[in-house]
Design a protein around this nucleic acid. Structure first.
Length: 281
DNA sequence: CACGAGACCTGTTCGC
DNA sequence: TGCGAACAGGTCTCGT
């Protein structure tokens, strides 16, 4: 489900409260429950239930699409994958159908991890870097520059769309924001990374930051019944707009499967092999 | 190294 | 109305 802007929105809500929910920063855990054991990547379920009580939530952060709760002794990392969601509510509430894990606090509040498709994962570890160590740079980190991006693109021969989805390359982009960024930068999703000019790599760098910033500003995207509160879905340029007019040139948006994922693009604004042709001429 | 297929899961929507 | 196919914001592993 969520990509960087949605996870960032959730992190801020957990930290500061919002959308009708109180913050959980500073809460002390009284009990930890797990209803679907595969939701826990590590450690073993017994250790999860034994180690959490007594720990306090001292920081709420994000790295890529990982939500990171810094606890007294451990870090709790949560990845929502396709259908995960988090709720903060009074412990007296009735649990819902796909609730997979619950942290109950001394205050009487609880944090619930709901995940219909069961793809989501949690890690409880003293060293979160062991989980996030393979991630590429944060899009808003100073090390992520246009020059860095141009150099990395030139150093590989990958289709640009799957490359943007590779979390080891850049952390946080998913199917929505990579389609949106490629459209804004005028790059066809199948373009080989080393055929992208330095100038257009700079445009892609700017587009990545721009679409992520807009996503965060709009509190993420809310599609179907999953995830709530966001507004970015009403401003998609190409994602999910197959057959509808491109907002720039009115050409119908096309869709095709690239790297097992659907890609949405404008065939006019994002011509296939554009950079290759420029180089050949 | 790059890429495709299949797996992991449940729910909704679409076409006949 | 029924029923199977296609599809969904993600990531991992395996084979070529």
């Amino acid at each position: 489900m969520p990509e960087l802007p949605e996870v960032e929105t959730i992190a801020r809500r957990l930290r500061d409260g919002g959308a009708g929910e109180p913050p959980i920063l500073g809460e002390q855990i009284r009990a930890a429950d797990l209803f679907w054991e595969r939701t826990l990547a590590e450690p073993r379920p017994e250790d999860f239930r034994l180690r959490l009580p007594g720990q306090r939530i001292e920081q709420v952060g994000r790295r890529g699409k990982f939500l990171i709760l810094r606890l007294t002794e451990d870090g709790l990392l949560i990845h929502l994958r396709m259908s995960g969601d988090l709720r903060v509510e009074p412990e007296a509430q009735v649990l819902q159908t796909h609730d997979r894990a619950v942290l109950t606090f001394d205050s009487g509040l609880r944090l619930v991890f709901n995940d219909p498709r069961k793809f989501g994962r949690m890690w409880l570890t003293p060293d979160p870097a062991t989980v996030t160590g393979g991630l590429g740079p944060e899009p808003f980190d100073e090390v992520f520059t246009a020059d860095w991006l141009a150099g990395e693109l030139a150093g590989r021969q990958r289709q640009i769309k799957p490359l943007l989805l590779d979390q080891g390359f850049i952390a946080g982009l998913g199917n929505i924001y990579s389609d949106e960024a490629l459209h804004q930068a005028g790059i066809h999703p199948l373009t080989r990374s080393d055929r992208i000019s330095t100038q257009r790599a700079a445009a892609l760098w700017a587009a990545i930051r721009a679409v992520l910033e807009e996503g965060i500003r709009r509190n993420g995207a809310s599609i179907d019944w999953v995830y709530r509160g966001g507004d970015f879905q009403n401003h998609f340029r190409v994602y999910g707009r197959t057959g509808q007019p491109c907002r720039v040139c009115a050409t119908p948006v096309e869709r095709r499967i690239i790297g097992q994922r659907s890609s949405h693009y404008c065939p006019v604004c994002q011509p296939e092999q554009r950079e290759a042709r420029l180089q050949d001429e």
